[in-house]
């Protein structure tokens, strides 16, 4: 974004409750207003991430998601609606986000991230939230995160479990340090509840807000994993690989 836009009186009123948060305040809200975030894709995770970031007053969202809304999206993809079945997902997402926050600037891209488009799309934002199901998409975003020095928040889910971590170039490792190769048993379609993707999606949105505004301590060099089946939460230290082909020296 060019220039630094101060808050309007309307924005002070809308964001009053979060401006009250200690160490955030108007300065934090202004940082969100002047920030841009890529959310890819806008499925179970990305819908909630984008919705929370729109609600929080992030100034610009770039959302990338191919395909049309299917019935099986509707248990968790909260930006998709029954009346949009058979129509482009990214249009449904844009429409719902604009309803929530008409001040939001949205770039809606009807494509999934790939090695071909990642450089240009990542170049448009300050931070990336990776909500993609396929490791090829995730590795493409990770590579650009490292090359363009943009923070990358990684969130994932399966069944009633979820994982989340935050990578910051030069301060942490990267996705390829954590998972060097496509995992052997991963399939694009898997069992999950919308309440699970919603839980970790909210956490990812909070991580994005923290990194953009400087609030709190991001989940760097640690992997939070939890299982809502028995409500166990674990925070594990993760390593940077010196021989990583993406971020290693």
């Amino acid at each position: 974004m060019s220039g630094f836009a101060p808050l309007t009186d309307e924005e002070r009123a809308v964001y009053e409750w979060q401006i009250w948060v200690p160490e955030f305040g108007e300065a934090g809200q202004e940082k969100l207003k002047n920030a841009s975030v890529l959310v890819s894709r806008c499925g179970g995770l990305g819908s909630v991430v984008a919705y929370e970031l729109a609600a929080a007053g992030v100034g610009k969202l770039v959302i990338a998601h191919a395909g049309n809304v299917k019935p099986s999206d509707l248990n968790r993809q909260l930006l998709m609606t029954h009346d949009w079945l058979g129509k482009p997902r990214v249009e449904s997402a844009e429409r719902r986000l604009k309803e929530l926050n008409p001040r939001l600037e949205i770039v809606a891209i009807p494509e999934n991230i790939s090695e071909e488009n990642a450089e240009n799309i990542v170049d448009q934002v300050d931070l990336i939230v990776d909500c993609a199901p396929l490791f090829t998409e995730r590795y493409a975003m990770n590579r650009q995160s490292v090359l363009q020095k943009k923070p990358l928040i990684e969130c994932a889910m399966y069944d009633l479990e979820a994982q989340i971590t935050t990578f910051i170039p030069d301060q942490t490792g990267c996705l390829s340090c954590l998972f060097p190769h496509d995992p052997p048993a991963w399939k694009r379609e898997f069992p999950v509840f919308g309440a699970v993707s919603g839980t970790v999606g909210c956490m990812a949105a909070m991580e994005a807000i923290k990194v953009l505004s400087g609030l709190g301590q991001p989940l760097t060099n640690q992997l939070l994993m939890f299982d809502l089946r028995d409500m166990t939460f674990q925070r594990n230290t993760i390593q940077r690989r010196a021989d990583c082909p993406v971020c290693g020296k």
Partner: peptide
């Protein structure tokens, strides 16, 4: 709660809890 790479040699102790994690994704 500390990641150990496969190539690192770690001798286990009685209080240790070992976690084997499989990667997952979004969707």
């Amino acid at each position: 709660n500390e990641q150990v790479l496969w190539e690192e040699s770690v001798t286990l102790e009685p209080h240790h809890v070992v976690t084997i994690l499989s990667p997952i994704s979004g969707g």
